[in-house]
C-alpha cells in the first residue's frame, strides 16, 4: 500500500477529548462522527480536512478515553494515516480495528512540514519527503491483515467465511 497526502502537524499528547469531544458520544453513525473530528482542537478542522490527508503528530497521540470514535471520526473525515512519535495503547488498537493506517516514527515529526505532501510506502516501510526517506518498522503481519481488510469487522467476517 502506498499513501500520498497533505500533512497536518499536531503536537504531543493529542487526547481523545480534543479528537472527539464527549458530547458527541451518543452518535453511532460514522459519517456523522466525521463531522466532529478534531473539533476539540479547532472547531473548523473537519471542514479543512481533504480526503487522503495525513496527520503527523508528537508523542502519546490519542491518549485518554477508549472511545473508538476518535479513530472512526478521523478515518471517515478523510485522514488516510496517522504518523506519530508514539501512540496511546487503546487508540492504537482502535485505529487498526477501524482500518485507519498508523505509522510510528520518532523522526518524521521534525522533518515534515505542515501543508506539504508526503508519501508513505508500507511495503518498503518508508516515509518519502522531497529528498529524504525515513524508515519505519513494519507492523506484525496479522495487524497488517486487519488493516488491509478494512478493519476488525471485515477481517473477522473474512476469517469466518474461510472456515
Amino acid at each position: 500500500m502506498i499513501l500520498k497526502g497533505r500533512v497536518w502537524k499536531l503536537k504531543d499528547n493529542i487526547d481523545t477529548d480534543l479528537i472527539y469531544p464527549g458530547k458527541y458520544l451518543p452518535i453511532i453513525d460514522s459519517k456523522e462522527m466525521a463531522k466532529h473530528a478534531l473539533e476539540g482542537l479547532d472547531k473548523n478542522f473537519p471542514q479543512k480536512i481533504q480526503k487522503g490527508d495525513i496527520i503527523v503528530a508528537g508523542k502519546n497521540f490519542g491518549c485518554g478515553s477508549s472511545r473508538e470514535q476518535a479513530a472512526t471520526s478521523l478515518k471517515h473525515a478523510g485522514i488516510s494515516c496517522v504518523v506519530a512519535k508514539s501512540f496511546s495503547r487503546i487508540f492504537f488498537r482502535n485505529a487498526i480495528n477501524q482500518g485507519l493506517a498508523l505509522v510510528q516514527s520518532e523522526k518524521a515529526y521534525d522533518l515534515v512540514e505542515e501543508g506539504k505532501e508526503i508519501i508513505i510506502d508500507f511495503e518498503k516501510g518508508e516515509i518519502i519527503l522531497n529528498d529524504k526517506k525515513i524508515e519505519f518498522a513494519h507492523l506484525p503481519d496479522f495487524i497488517k491483515e486487519i488493516l488491509d481488510s478494512g478493519g476488525l469487522i471485515p477481517y473477522i467476517k473474512k476469517k469466518l467465511e474461510q472456515k
Partner: peptide, 13 residues
C-alpha cells in the same frame, strides 16, 4: 484493561 467498541464486538463474537 480498556478496549474499543468494535474490538468488544469481536470478543462477543
Amino acid at each position: 484493561t480498556g478496549i474499543g467498541a468494535t474490538e468488544m464486538a469481536g470478543v462477543w463474537a
